[in-house]
Computed example of a mutant assay.
Amino acid sequence: MTEQNLSPREKQLLRRLAAGKTDRQIAAKLGGTIDQISDQRKRLLKKLRITSQV
């Protein structure tokens, strides 16, 4: 999986997750609900084959 395979929205989300932002903080910055961000995060982690978050 390369960065080229990620949508612009997924890249934004990934950058914020890597910076330690919460779903609530990401939703406030990018727009959308906390539930939407949570779902997008889960799909992104699955797409990247990440099985756990620390």
Rank of each mutant, 00 (worst) to 15 (best):
D35T: 11
K47N: 10
D23P: 01
L44I: 04
Q25W: 04
T33S: 15
L44K: 04
R15Y: 07
D23T: 08
K29Q: 15
I50Q: 10
Q36G: 00
L17R: 02
P8Y: 03
K42M: 05
A28C: 01
R43A: 14
D39E: 11
K46D: 14
S7N: 03
T2N: 14
T51C: 08
R16V: 00
L45N: 02
T33I: 09
Q53T: 14
L48A: 00
G31N: 01
T51K: 13
I50C: 12
A19I: 00
I26W: 02
I50A: 13
A19V: 02
T51L: 13
A19C: 01
S52M: 00
V54G: 15
P8F: 09
T2F: 09
E10W: 02
L14Q: 07
K11H: 12
L14Y: 10
I34N: 10
Q12R: 06
R16I: 01
K46F: 03
L13K: 03
S7H: 08
K29F: 10
L14T: 03
G20D: 07
K21Q: 14
Q40E: 14
R15E: 15
A18N: 13
Q40G: 02
V54N: 11
A28I: 01
A27P: 10
L6T: 08
S52L: 03
R16C: 02
G20M: 07
I37F: 07
K46Q: 14
T51Q: 15
R9G: 01
G32P: 05
L14K: 08
K42D: 13
R43M: 10
I37T: 15
G20Q: 06
T2C: 04
Q25M: 12
Q53A: 06
M1A: 12
A18M: 11
L13F: 06
K42E: 12
D23R: 07
G20F: 10
R16W: 13
S52E: 12
D39F: 07
S7M: 08
K47I: 08
R41H: 00
T33Y: 06
R16N: 09
G20I: 06
Q25T: 09
R9E: 12
Q25E: 15
R24F: 03
L6R: 05
L17Y: 03
K42P: 00
K46G: 06
R16A: 01
Q36A: 15
R16G: 01
K21I: 00
Q36W: 09
S38F: 10
G31L: 01
Q36D: 05
Q53W: 05
S52Y: 05
